[in-house]
Amino acid sequence: MTLRIDYYIYYRIDAAREIALLAALADMQASLQAATGVAGRVRRRLDDPQTWMEVYEGVRNQRLFELELGSHVLSHGLNDFLAPESVRHLERFRAA
Rank of each mutant, 00 (worst) to 15 (best):
M1H: 10
M1K: 10
M1I: 13
L3V: 10
R4A: 15
R4E: 12
R4L: 15
I5G: 03
I5D: 01
Y7K: 03
I9E: 00
Y10L: 05
Y11H: 08
Y11F: 15
R12V: 06
I13D: 01
D14Y: 10
A16T: 14
A16H: 13
R17Y: 02
I19T: 14
A20E: 15
L21S: 04
A23K: 12
A24R: 00
A24F: 00
L25M: 14
D27Y: 04
S31P: 03
S31R: 09
Q33W: 11
A35E: 08
T36G: 00
G37I: 03
G37H: 06
A39I: 07
G40Y: 03
V42D: 02
R43E: 13
R44N: 08
L46V: 15
D47A: 13
D47G: 10
Q50T: 07
Q50Y: 09
W52T: 01
E54H: 08
E54N: 10
V55T: 11
V55K: 02
E57N: 05
G58L: 06
G58A: 09
N61C: 11
N61V: 11
F65K: 03
F65P: 01
F65L: 05
E66Y: 03
E66R: 07
L67D: 11
L67W: 12
E68V: 09
E68I: 04
E68G: 00
L69Q: 05
L69Y: 08
G70N: 12
H72Y: 09
V73D: 00
V73M: 05
S75A: 15
H76R: 08
G77H: 14
L78F: 05
L82C: 01
L82W: 03
A83N: 01
P84R: 06
S86A: 07
R88E: 05
H89K: 08
H89W: 08
L90I: 07
E91D: 12
R92E: 10
F93D: 07
A96I: 06
